[in-house]
């Protein structure tokens, strides 16, 4: 019994440790969101609540502009749906590797924290996902996200611009740390990464009037489909 408790604790702390770079990256991104939200006429508390209840960057930024423009609630729902629909794909992917301990209540709680970054770390770093691991990563990431929002909203000018600029690359650095090592070992992953990057560059140049969330779905699904056809994953590997 004691042993089991220690095990779940270590799951939580391993998740929290993996959450540190996400939390730090979120701190800087949400700092910018806090400044924008207050600049658009929201209170510090409202900005904080948006970050706490949404935990997403593009959707929140777009949501604030709907609020500022006095859009309808229907428009708000539609905008959120289109920008955030990519999370449905990520949730589906994660649902395939959940541990038996993931009961209904754990699923209801943990799904709150499925963001691009948390999804990426959970998929690439873990073979089987445990609730405590996800709670660890979500706790640290969310803490960074709401703290950054609060600081940006309450005192946007405290950090020098050079520091904010340098923090902007932090999450991307973490992404590279996730994709480069497996791409070295597996040609399928290397192909997926290079092909997706190529499509993404093409979209950036030619499809400038399409939203970022939509471009992301388009490029990543296209790259993954082609890779799955050329490099089907072997049946006998771990499940």
């Amino acid at each position: 019994m004691i042993k089991k408790k220690r095990k779940t604790q270590s799951d939580f702390f391993r998740g929290a440790y993996h959450g540190i770079p996400i939390g730090l990256g979120y701190l800087s991104v949400s700092f910018g969101f806090g400044i924008t939200a207050v600049g658009s006429g929201l209170s510090v508390f409202e900005a904080f609540m948006i970050s706490l209840t949404n935990l997403t960057s593009a959707g929140q930024a777009q949501g604030v502009s709907v609020i500022a423009a006095g859009g309808t609630l229907f428009e708000m729902a539609l905008v959120q749906f289109i920008i955030n629909i990519r999370y449905a794909l990520m949730s589906l992917s994660l649902s395939q590797k959940l541990d038996k301990r993931f009961t209904l209540i754990h699923r209801l709680i943990a799904s709150y924290g499925i963001t691009d970054e948390i999804f990426a770390v959970c998929s690439a770093k873990e073979k089987i996902l445990k609730p405590m691991y996800m709670y660890g990563i979500i706790a640290v990431s969310t803490f960074g996200w709401v703290t950054g929002t609060f600081l940006g909203a309450a005192a946007g000018e405290i950090l020098p611009g050079s520091v904010v600029a340098a923090l902007g690359i932090l999450l991307y650095g973490m992404f590279l740390a996730i994709i480069v090592p497996p791409a070295r070992k597996e040609s399928g992953i290397l192909f997926a990464v290079l092909f997706a990057a190529l499509l993404s560059i093409i979209c950036r140049i030619f499809l400038t009037n399409i939203s970022g969330g939509f471009t992301m779905i388009l490029c990543s699904v296209a790259a993954a489909v082609v890779t799955a056809v050329i490099f089907p994953k072997k049946e006998d590997t771990e499940e």
Binding site: I179, L199, R204
Partner: peptide
């Protein structure tokens, strides 16, 4: 299964490139 296996890497690559080069201004 293969598709879901490759999607995270494709998603990350799409998000990182070319955005990383614009990330610091």
């Amino acid at each position: 299964k293969s598709l879901l296996y490759y999607i995270p890497y494709a998603v990350l690559s799409t998000m990182t490139i070319p955005a990383i080069f614009y990330s610091t201004g």
